[in-house]
Design a protein around this nucleic acid. Sequence first.
DNA 1: AAAAACTGGTACCTTTTGTTACAGCTGAAA
DNA 2: TTTCAGCTGTAACAAAAGGTACCAGTTTTT
Lengths: 208, 208
Amino acid sequence: MSEFNLLFKALNIVEEDLKAEIIQCGVVQTVPKHSYIVEQDKYIKWLAIVISGKVRVWQENEDRQILLYYVNPIETCVLSLSATFRDCKSVVNAKTVEETTIIKLPVRVVTAWSFKYKSWNKFTTESFIFSYEDLLHSYKNLAFNKIDKRVLDYLHTYAKKNKSLSIPLSHSQLAKEIGTTREVISKILKQFELSGLVNLKIKQIELL
Amino acid sequence: MSEFNLLFKALNIVEEDLKAEIIQCGVVQTVPKHSYIVEQDKYIKWLAIVISGKVRVWQENEDRQILLYYVNPIETCVLSLSATFRDCKSVVNAKTVEETTIIKLPVRVVTAWSFKYKSWNKFTTESFIFSYEDLLHSYKNLAFNKIDKRVLDYLHTYAKKNKSLSIPLSHSQLAKEIGTTREVISKILKQFELSGLVNLKIKQIELL
DNA sequence: AAAAACTGGTACCTTTTGTTACAGCTGAAA
DNA sequence: TTTCAGCTGTAACAAAAGGTACCAGTTTTT
């Protein structure tokens, strides 16, 4: 099935006019792994919807990072979605984790769709709601939980989303997800191992 | 001017049908200070829009709190807005700071408006975008800044929003906004005073 | 006016988190 | 095979933040 048809099906887009508009102005693009999709402080000109692959979205401050979320197939980054309503610079970075196919839609064209097409309205609304709740959850987690709890949460969430108890991350990668340093992660993982919570291998953490 | 007309004007609601619907199902209510508008884990049945007064929205965990945002006149709480699209329990608390007049709209009725009325679509979209960016800013702040910086940020933001260099909060109230304890705030404010950044009085912090 | 509750100041200690420094290990490239 | 960069482990130390305790004003309630 073509990328467009995948998109139509996943978002329940039935309006022929909308389909035509998307096909007309949409650009299918396959991006190699570890490529930037958006960069902090740069203007967002395209709304990108991930068809296959995965995109990591995070914030930076000096040498620290903190994960915001991953964009999975048939999702879009909320922040580029806001950009479709209001020209603005990105306050985040987004980079492909693996080879990723996206459909790019020019921001200016998309703006009107949310009122014109019911399916698009639903898509944007749900994206906003889901993303807001997700961020809220992260905020609460960050505000009230110590790092070890946050690490454990992260591992469990990762396992759940990927349906695998094996998390293929190095200590320093994990540190960047959580917003701390490698040494702290090493210490915590070691404690987890001693408590029998995990098995540690190189670039691999196995939940027990 | 009636509360409804204030609302129509502020949100640029021109559709007569929408005005009629709002007037028909909306309830104007004046709530005394320090009253709960929504409570954690309870279902949201009304979308509340603040007409005058102020509502504080926060999250709790054991004896700690952290401020999410204030809802000011002609704003609505995003979270109750999401509830209009999807029945859900509140994950936050909201309480009036002062006597507050709100217009309550039953969640079930509002759902369809965002596609039916352009002005309502704009209102919801802008609420989502604004709130998301606001939360994102708080998240970054929490992730990367130490408490003293966050306190200073809070004071400056407060001063800016209220157009007054005088912040009428006790140390323990401020602690609850930031998500820490009274002693920590006392220590930090004392340092600020010694550095000549603020003047301290009882229940009053003056930015210099 | 007396009592109670709230507010602020401070000292001391603990826990949590971060930093520095170094050593051993692993896997891929030359 | 050697080499080297990246990964992991760990110890010692430093800084940030939180907890406890107690005291002294101030405001509110009784």
